[in-house]
């Protein structure tokens, strides 16, 4: 017999857990958010105006992080790139998250034949090189960030679907679901109002990992010239431009590289921290 009559100590929220346990993740993600949301207002200079007279300057009082080959302020362009990265994040997480959660929730929550069919679809989607195929199509038709990121988002559908399905299956026989059923709630309403709120945590974890992936894909595609088009900045296009001047001004490539790495690291650490948090609070 379990002893459960003593009130359980209220758990600390996810945010305060992350602040305490992974302050680095919290700091990096916070900086990324600030840069992405407030970039245009924080940028000390124009992101696109060229000034050849000031090209390839090292960091100095006017240009804190120096300038690129066309004399544009690196800090301002990094802030702009963060905004693009955030867009990539959002598109991927929304596409993958909404579709994947819907698939997984219905498959796991209803079970039976529905689950069998949806699970096969998810498996096929997972085995399919969605991103590569999509990139080819995007490259042929029209290079655009949105299209490319929707493709990456589709590739993320199986991740979200697997997690949502797992949670739904786990919850299906739980007593509070049975209680809802016993009250006469419809199965769809049970899924939406009883099951869904219980998978928010695990889904956020997937979102932070797949979102980090999204930022990497965006950088890679823009590096190849398939994403954001010049003169607008993005981490990928900045890296490509910096590559040509590695010998003359290596700090340029290093700055950009470090920034992307820091953002991806921050998101991955956040995902790890949240997994720990939910592992503990589910006990």
């Amino acid at each position: 017999m379990t002893e459960i009559s003593t009130p359980v100590r209220p758990q600390s929220g996810a945010v305060s857990y992350i602040l305490r346990r992974s302050p680095v993740a919290a700091l990096l993600v916070a900086l990324f958010l600030i840069a992405a949301l407030l970039g245009p207002w924080l940028a000390p200079h124009s992101m696109t105006d060229t000034n050849l007279g000031h090209a390839l300057q090292p960091p100095n009082a006017t240009y804190w992080l120096g300038t690129d080959a066309l004399g544009r302020d690196v800090l301002s362009r990094l802030l702009g790139s963060a905004g693009i990265a955030a867009q990539a994040f959002l598109i991927v997480v929304l596409t993958g998250g909404v579709l994947g959660t819907l698939f997984g929730l219905v498959a796991g929550g209803i079970g039976g034949l529905t689950d069998l069919v949806l699970s096969r679809v998810i498996e096929i989607l997972q085995g399919f090189p969605t991103v590569l195929v999509a990139i080819v199509i995007v490259a042929l038709l029209s290079p655009s960030l949105t299209n490319a990121m929707i493709a990456v988002g589709l590739a993320a559908v199986p991740d979200f679907a697997r997690v949502a399905r797992g949670v739904a299956i786990q919850l299906r026989e739980r007593e509070f679901i049975q209680a809802a059923r016993g009250l006469g709630m419809s199965e769809m309403r049970i899924l939406a109002s009883e099951v869904l709120p219980n998978m928010v945590g695990p889904l956020i974890i997937i979102a932070s990992f797949d979102g980090a992936q999204a930022i990497m894909w965006e950088a890679a595609l823009s590096f190849l010239g398939l994403g954001v088009q010049p003169p607008y900045p993005s981490f990928g296009s900045m890296l490509r431009e910096a590559q040509n001047f590695l010998a003359i001004q290596p700090s340029l490539a290093i700055t950009v590289g470090l920034t992307v790495s820091a953002i991806i690291l921050g998101l991955n650490l956040l995902g790890d921290g949240l997994s720990d948090y939910y592992d503990r609070s589910d006990k």
Partner: peptide
């Protein structure tokens, strides 16, 4: 239900 912890939705 027997287990009043499991029978209430924690969220």
């Amino acid at each position: 239900f027997q287990d009043p912890f499991a029978s209430l939705n924690p969220r």
